[in-house]
Design a protein around this nucleic acid. Sequence first.
DNA 1: CGATCAATCTATGCATACATTAACAAACGC
DNA 2: GCGTTTGTTAATGTATGCATAGATTGATCG
Lengths: 235, 235
Amino acid sequence: MPLIPNNVASPSEPVSDPSRISNAERAYRALKQLILTNQLPAGSQLLEQEAALQLGMSRTPVREAMVRLEQDGVAEIRPRHGMRVLPVSADDLREIYEVLTSLESTAADLVARRGVSAAELAQLQQAVSDMDTALAIDDLEAWAAADQRFHSLLVELTRNQRLQQIVKQLGEQAHRARMLTLRLRPNPVGSNRDHAMLVAAIAGRDADQARSIHHDHRAKAGIMLVELLEKLGFR
Amino acid sequence: MPLIPNNVASPSEPVSDPSRISNAERAYRALKQLILTNQLPAGSQLLEQEAALQLGMSRTPVREAMVRLEQDGVAEIRPRHGMRVLPVSADDLREIYEVLTSLESTAADLVARRGVSAAELAQLQQAVSDMDTALAIDDLEAWAAADQRFHSLLVELTRNQRLQQIVKQLGEQAHRARMLTLRLRPNPVGSNRDHAMLVAAIAGRDADQARSIHHDHRAKAGIMLVELLEKLGFR
DNA sequence: CGATCAATCTATGCATACATTAACAAACGC
DNA sequence: GCGTTTGTTAATGTATGCATAGATTGATCG
């Protein structure tokens, strides 16, 4: 007997209270947070039961969280060994940056082409300025945060939710590697300059220029990180 | 100890099936298939219990499948209303094609830049030739299949697994809309020409040309589909 | 007749139980 | 000793039970 849809929903109406977070959601966020901060380092394994105990819930919601993390590409479920946090090899990072370079330079193009409001431009400029400040006082954590905010803003301005979501997901995968190498890489002065130039191109509605600048920016960063990771011996 | 040698398998039941698929996986594939073929059309809802009954399993693996489908972006879980198959609006399609255009033109660039073996080139040419044949006998289903194969091949040749996975996922989201409009759109003769030109550019290692051709190809197709969907009144 | 509210129903989210089977180890034959 | 076999353990995959909250229904009131 085939699965027959028994009714068709009217256009999606908000139904439930979004403020209530399920245990499955809590587990998902908690585990993801642990992974992104390297508290659950690459390669570590976690059994459903262990995680459930730690989080004060049963295996069921934990399992759901692990399934989601697997689909996010940050972990894998190995049938008798629990969830294993995926390492990010130099090759993985190369893949990630190839995609990010493509999508973010497209974002720069789209945003420049459409044009941005004064307020939006100000936000971008603020992020660049925060990066400069952070660099001046040698606060690399703050610099990384501002950098991330800049990229995030840029992508949000495309108003393409799928593009946003994909870039965010890949950014999370790359995050751990970036944090590991934050203090090993040359001071990112060039990065700040690139961003300032991109903002100028966006303000001037020069889509080709914006695309080109951001493409090179991401490609450079990608190559640098991949080489760094290779030197560190991450295969 | 057993008097009957245990290497004699009972006729009906294989002892150890190495490719044993979990019920959760079965549910995932079955539901996804139904959605992609529009047997479970956009907007339809399906309760966990209903699906479980139809698939001959309990709610637990069904639920896992639904969580995965939600992360795939083809359905949403609405508490107390079951899983709802997401409609693909004209706006959704615009988003999807923006990303696909970006990623696939990058793929064309990468593949042309690296160069392909004679065998790989032949596969691409075969796909183009199949598209021509299908068009000549007016078999649109076959044409769509060959078209999909071409795009799929192109992306596989990048050897970037993340790029492949993302393009595949977005392709699945767009699939239903493409099938719906397959007979309403103008005959895709231009599409075949674009593909032939792309193959030539790849053979000639002309990355810029390859990128440009494929970018325009995808952008054209996207605009056409979006307009078609808007005319059909999909919001 | 339409709106409001209470009573009922139901799908879900989670906990828990259980059968299965891979992984490990111990025992065994060579 | 060493590879093989068998027994044990434990983690999973799935089923099931249950409390809850949201949805639905129907009764009451204007």
